[in-house]
Amino acid sequence: MNIPNNSPEDLGNNLAAAERLARAIKVAGGEFSLILACCDSIAKQQQILKLLQELSSVAIQEMRLMPTDETLYTTITNTIGISQPQALMVHGLESVVAIPQMLISTNLMRDEFRKNLHFPIVLWVNNEVLSQLVWLAPDLKNWAATTIRFDISNSQLIENQAVSA
């Protein structure tokens, strides 16, 4: 597990990203929306969740996937039952053993999300899961707005852009 770096730059970036996340959840109110939140550090993710609770006026239900879960849609519907939360935050995707199969089935079932789930879903991913999502579930990934990242400082972002250029 990574220890979060709490430099002033990182705190500012995380606050701005948390504000974007809170705004995306609020704007989606009552409609299905897929929001990807990317963070490699579980400790930093917990900090962000606390901050999000302070920033958001929306009641956010949370659920954690188990390593043995096989389908995202069924797991969500079994967890929430007939209720429709204002927003749902899904953790633990990185722990799923059959992650490729889950992502492929989620991509195939994507229309069911929009038809039956009338609330925003925040799917927490790490960089590894995000890259698998891009390759294995491209249609689902395209439904998501820009991924909200919590692990990249301005200096890292500049460095990553220089490497990829």
Rank of each mutant, 00 (worst) to 15 (best):
residue 35 I to C: 07
residue 9 E to T: 10
residue 36 L to Y: 01
residue 9 E to Y: 13
residue 28 A to S: 07
residue 38 C to Y: 07
residue 16 A to V: 15
residue 31 E to G: 07
residue 27 V to P: 06
residue 15 L to I: 07
residue 14 N to C: 08
residue 7 S to A: 05
residue 26 K to G: 08
residue 17 A to E: 06
residue 26 K to E: 15
residue 11 L to H: 04
residue 42 I to D: 13
residue 33 S to C: 07
residue 18 A to P: 03
residue 37 A to D: 02
residue 29 G to V: 07
residue 38 C to I: 07
residue 39 C to D: 01
residue 23 R to W: 15
residue 15 L to T: 09
residue 23 R to Q: 15
residue 18 A to C: 02
residue 27 V to D: 10
residue 7 S to P: 08
residue 37 A to P: 02
residue 35 I to V: 06
residue 33 S to F: 05
residue 23 R to K: 15
residue 38 C to G: 08
residue 32 F to N: 11
residue 13 N to M: 15
residue 25 I to L: 06
residue 35 I to A: 00
residue 24 A to P: 05
residue 21 L to W: 00
residue 38 C to E: 14
residue 33 S to Q: 03
residue 24 A to E: 09
residue 21 L to N: 02
residue 13 N to I: 14
residue 16 A to K: 14
residue 20 R to S: 13
residue 8 P to S: 14
residue 15 L to M: 08
residue 9 E to Q: 15
residue 20 R to K: 12
residue 26 K to Q: 10
residue 13 N to C: 10
residue 36 L to Q: 03
residue 35 I to H: 00
residue 30 G to E: 14
residue 17 A to W: 03
residue 8 P to H: 15
residue 37 A to S: 04
residue 14 N to L: 03
residue 30 G to Y: 02
residue 34 L to A: 01
residue 37 A to G: 04
residue 22 A to L: 02
residue 17 A to I: 01
residue 18 A to N: 01
residue 33 S to P: 00
residue 36 L to V: 11
residue 29 G to N: 12
residue 23 R to C: 13
residue 10 D to C: 09
residue 34 L to Y: 08
residue 10 D to F: 10
residue 34 L to V: 02
residue 15 L to V: 13
residue 24 A to F: 04
residue 17 A to K: 01
residue 21 L to H: 05
residue 34 L to N: 00
residue 18 A to M: 01
residue 26 K to L: 12
residue 37 A to Q: 02
residue 9 E to I: 10
residue 38 C to H: 02
residue 28 A to L: 08
residue 20 R to L: 09
residue 42 I to L: 12
residue 17 A to L: 03
residue 35 I to T: 00
residue 42 I to R: 11
residue 11 L to K: 06
residue 41 S to Q: 09
residue 24 A to K: 12
residue 26 K to T: 15
residue 28 A to W: 10
residue 28 A to M: 02
residue 10 D to H: 11
residue 30 G to A: 12
residue 36 L to M: 13
residue 28 A to Y: 01
residue 28 A to E: 06
residue 22 A to I: 04
residue 27 V to H: 07
residue 19 E to H: 13
residue 10 D to K: 13
residue 7 S to L: 12
residue 22 A to K: 04
residue 12 G to C: 10
residue 18 A to S: 13
residue 37 A to T: 04
residue 41 S to G: 12
residue 31 E to K: 13
residue 40 D to R: 10
residue 40 D to P: 03
residue 8 P to Q: 13
